[in-house]
């Protein structure tokens, strides 16, 4: 029993590490394929010798293998290079911006998980009532509206028409309201659907009927018996929500001029800023990989059958 658990955790750890290395390799070589960034930054051409000087300064004149070896050594030392545009260490720029995105992201994440799970349970329990059919229609309509359209409609209504909320920048709590709404609409919908489908499915199982016939209350049956089994699909969807929030933040930050990572990354792609893009993709992928790793361990705790089967 202990050995199996250990093997499961070890396997998941190795797989996660391999994925991180694959991401590093992939991103590094992809970024090097983009051509020389200085030729993009100076479209009118440069002084003779200037290009060579920059190339040797940033190590772009060495072979790819050599560059990757250097990069990996630096990464392991915690040194992620210097931004080609800002001329400041990538790490510095990043953590400054990441804080802003993290604050936004964590609020959106908590909001969507709370509302999504509560709504999902509510929908599954009262599935035949009118109100739930109504919510269902609203949800499927909202599902068809992309985040940026919601953002624009919110800006028009609350920003320009009622002058209630600030439409760009960060800082005060009021600045959070619209970006958080835009970021959480999509995740709320997917969590609601997952949770309510999961609970509906378990509610139709035989052991639920047994539990009901034993005479324990409805609440008990739902929370103790049904929700625990519906938790597994919920965990899967939480992994997807993290990805949704990260990718959504790029659009939302661009719309609301939020001074965070998403906007920095969009700009760095436009400027072909190698180190920044590399670090961005690696950093965000690692966050997603770690989330999935934690979720995998949680699966095992919620459903001990998984460690025996091995895969899900």
């Amino acid at each position: 029993m202990k050995g199996q658990m250990f093997r499961y955790v070890l396997k998941k750890t190795l797989v996660s590490l391999c994925t991180v290395i694959c991401v590093l390799l992939f991103v590094f070589f992809a970024a090097r394929l983009t051509g020389n960034p200085f030729e993009v930054m100076y479209p009118e051409g440069m002084e003779p010798g200037q290009l060579e000087k920059y190339n040797s300064e940033f190590g772009l004149d060495q072979s790819l293998i050599q560059q990757f070896a250097d990069y990996m050594t630096n990464v392991l030392h915690g040194d992620f290079g210097i931004s080609l545009v800002d001329k400041r260490p990538v790490k510095e720029i990043f953590f400054e911006k990441a804080m802003e995105t993290f604050k936004l992201g964590i609020i959106a994440f908590l909001v969507s998980v709370t509302i999504g799970v509560a709504n999902g349970i509510f929908m599954a329990v009262n599935q035949d009532k009118m109100i739930c059919k109504l919510i269902n229609h609203i949800i499927s309509a909202l599902y068809a509206i992309p985040g940026f359209v919601i953002a624009i409609i919110l800006i028009m209504i609350f920003g320009y028409y009622f002058h209630l909320l600030p439409t760009f920048g960060g800082g005060t709590p009021a600045h959070y309201i619209m970006p958080v709404i835009c970021l959480s609409v999509g995740p709320i919908i997917s969590i609601t659907r997952h949770v309510s489908n999961g609970i509906k499915e378990t509610l139709s199982q035989d052991y639920i009927r047994t539990a009901v016939s034993k005479g324990i209350g409805r609440k008990q049956v739902i929370l103790k018996h049904a929700f625990r089994n519906a938790l597994i699909p919920t965990l899967t969807v939480i992994g997807m929500v993290v990805v949704d929030v990260i990718t959504g933040s790029m659009v939302v930050e661009t719309v609301f001029s939020w001074p965070g990572l998403g906007m920095t990354l969009v700009n760095s792609v436009m400027n072909r800023d190698f180190p920044l893009i590399q670090f961005g993709v690696v950093f965000l992928s690692v966050i997603v990989i770690i989330t999935n790793y934690i979720l995998d361990i949680l699966y095992m705790i919620v459903d001990p059958r998984i460690e025996k089967g091995g895969t899900i």
Binding site: T19, C22, A30, I246, V269, I277, L284
Partner: peptide, 19 residues
């Protein structure tokens, strides 16, 4: 499939568009 699911793909598209 696992690899594809564990990376934020929009970032990869952004890289690809630059390349």
């Amino acid at each position: 499939i696992d690899f594809q699911q564990s990376i934020p793909f929009t970032l990869i598209i952004m890289l690809g568009v630059v390349i």
